[in-house]
Design a protein around this nucleic acid. Structure first.
Length: 270
DNA sequence: ACGCCCGCCTGTAAGC
DNA sequence: TGCTTACAGGCGGGCG
């Protein structure tokens, strides 16, 4: 389940290994992978274009083309972007392949087909206000955003309109770090709690990016070369139901919250 | 307008 | 052991 740290890791891999390459050909086979436009027009936009930059907007990856348009890629739940030699076997659920001028293939693999590709002019690339890596929210601004809302703080963290890139894993880790319960309403947080939350967002995301993201037992997330991340070894609550809280040794609990699993320490998160 | 819920999908694993 | 069921969850759209 790629969230910001995983997508940022891929962006860096793409910047190092794909930027500068020209797309010699593109093939789209997945029926749902290109759905905002005619797949033929996407192929036409890509063919012959040189990739000049690798960016990220929230969980969207952006590959800027020399002709000005931008290839936007969202992995959603199960998407992977992999760089291969053409002789490598095609994995099941490979829905798009870009052949590059250095002989490699950039392949989009996505069993659950939630992910998508599209090509748009730069002004139509999805954009977000704040992003923990590229545009951190100032602490006072965070306080104002929280005070002006009446939703659960976990819902706030996962809403890209406020802060892009945080999903279920990192919201649970951030809230544990901040010692705040997921169901707390944003407008009830004290100044101290806002400060802890603001610090926790930066710390957790920075550490996760440093460790190239989290790969879980389902191995849904791997980098451009198929390698897992290692932040899962630093998870303090996520997928740790019944194990001791690293801070107070109380057993971690799991509860449904807005159709999602939430992992938390019932003692030190209030 | 805001907050919340559902549907989209398939692979994996728990449960009977 | 083999089948059925629950679950994984980002995001857009729709509902109250």
């Amino acid at each position: 389940m790629p969230e910001l740290p995983e997508v940022e890791t891929l962006r860096r891999d793409l910047a190092a290994h794909v930027v500068g390459r020209r797309v010699e050909s593109a093939v789209v086979t997945g029926a749902r992978t290109v759905r905002r436009q005619d797949p033929e027009s996407l192929v036409e936009s890509l063919t012959g274009a040189r990739i000049v930059a690798a960016g990220r907007a929230g969980k969207y990856l952006t590959l800027t083309l020399d002709e000005g348009d931008v290839l936007v890629i969202h992995l959603r739940m199960s998407g992977q972007l992999r760089l291969h030699d053409p002789v490598d076997g095609i994995a099941p659920h490979t829905h798009a392949v870009l052949t590059l001028d250095d002989g490699h293939e950039l392949r989009f693999v996505d069993p659950r087909t939630f992910g998508e590709l599209f090509v748009v002019p730069p002004q139509d690339v999805p954009a977000f206000s704040y992003d923990p890596v590229s545009a951190p929210v100032p602490r006072a601004r965070l306080a104002a955003l929280l005070a002006g809302r009446r939703l659960a703080v976990k819902g706030f963290l996962m809403d890209a309109r406020f802060m892009a890139g945080i999903g279920n894993i990192y919201s649970d880790e951030i809230l544990h770090r901040a010692r705040i319960a997921h169901h707390r309403r944003t407008d009830t947080l004290t100044g101290h709690e806002v400060g802890r939350l603001w610090r926790a967002v930066g710390e957790v995301i920075d550490e996760a990016v440093e460790l190239r993201g989290s790969s879980l037992s389902d191995a849904q997330y791997v980098d451009l070369f198929g390698r897992p991340g290692s932040f899962q070894g630093s998870h303090r609550v996520y997928a740790r139901e019944g194990r001791p809280c690293p801070r107070c040794a109380t057993l971690i609990r799991r509860s449904p919250f807005q159709q999602r699993s939430t992992f938390y320490c019932p003692r030190c998160q209030r």
